[in-house]
Design a binder for these strands. Sequence first.
DNA 1: TTATATACAAACGTGAATGTTTGTAAAGGA
DNA 2: TCCTTTACAAACATTCACGTTTGTATATAA
Lengths: 209, 209
Amino acid sequence: MARKTKSDTEQTRQQLIAAARKVFALRGVSRTTLAQIANEAGVTRGAIYWHFKNKPDLFFAMLEQVSLPMIHRINENLPAVDLRDPLRGIQASMHEILRLMKEDEIARTTFEIVVLKCEYVDEFASLESRVIKTGCDFMQTLKRAYEEAREQNLLRDGIDPAQCAMESFVFIKGLIHLWLSDVDGTIVRGKAHSLIDAHIAMRYKQVLY
Amino acid sequence: MARKTKSDTEQTRQQLIAAARKVFALRGVSRTTLAQIANEAGVTRGAIYWHFKNKPDLFFAMLEQVSLPMIHRINENLPAVDLRDPLRGIQASMHEILRLMKEDEIARTTFEIVVLKCEYVDEFASLESRVIKTGCDFMQTLKRAYEEAREQNLLRDGIDPAQCAMESFVFIKGLIHLWLSDVDGTIVRGKAHSLIDAHIAMRYKQVLY
DNA sequence: TTATATACAAACGTGAATGTTTGTAAAGGA
DNA sequence: TCCTTTACAAACATTCACGTTTGTATATAA
């Protein structure tokens, strides 16, 4: 077979990842065969075994493509938006997550696979701890923002920043799951943004709107 | 082979369901083979094919065993606990869910499978809509409780009962997922109950504790 | 008591996915 | 120009899970 140039090679790799994402989302990770992925990418299994060790390896390569830039984009919204009001930063960060899932098809599909089309066992069990760890980092950032809000006397009395941060994390976790499950968009998707606003509004000392 | 009496037959069926639950939780639904389940139950695959059509059929039978009584137990806590304070009813219902997951191993394992060890595709895609539907019912009940709370002037100003109900549903969904993911219990499990209390407290007109 | 249906066990056949090996045409270096 | 390596395709061998069929001992009904 015709050997490709270096950029062609990388393109094949990217096509394989894209094909894997598509088939994973359609058939689920376990039920997806490497032949299906190869077929979707217009190559044979030989190409997969050249670029990746096996299915889990391809799976994690697919994750890498989105996880790192995503974490960065979400965190950068947190502190910077409005230094005088950290709650707005949290709010913006949450809206950004939703925006990503709506507009970025790659991110959305990847989320979908991680949440609904993957079983957390054996080689994939490590994914669980990775997700948890990322969540903890996010929670820490949230906590700092809430502490800052309290110092600025914005936070409602009797609210503990750490607990509040965890509750926000639980909230966004649940929201993501429900948003993804609500495929026809009749239950959650239409109201998700205003839900975030309500979630944040409840934390203010006085309700502003 | 020795034919069993009627009660023995039902016992075999229950053993198969218990074995399926155990192996599903360990290996994930897709990777679990019927031979593994039969082996765990101390029978052969012949017994499985006698009692169930195939793996999905066994899977849904396993769900039936817990879903119906569970829904009932959770809902019964909602309105009745304290008619003078519906928010306490919501709170009690949420605590009851946690209690179930902690103390009822069958319920916990089943939750674990549904949340972490199952891919929502093909025959199992219908499970997603079932979960969603159950959630919507729960949300409706929550909404009525919040409306009642508002009529009794317990609810904080500016809170919309429908939105508040959805946020509570999102909260409990996220909490269940994180509780299950937090296997070593260092992050969420120890604080889950107080998180619920904080979630409810934030909805009161004045913070009581 | 005999016949039949029950509740499985055991064996069979089949397809299909995996990992590996072999083949091969072209790219890139010397 | 020639050789080596690359980037796959294609073929192979093996395992394995599934569904089906057949066998069989025994409860139960007649």
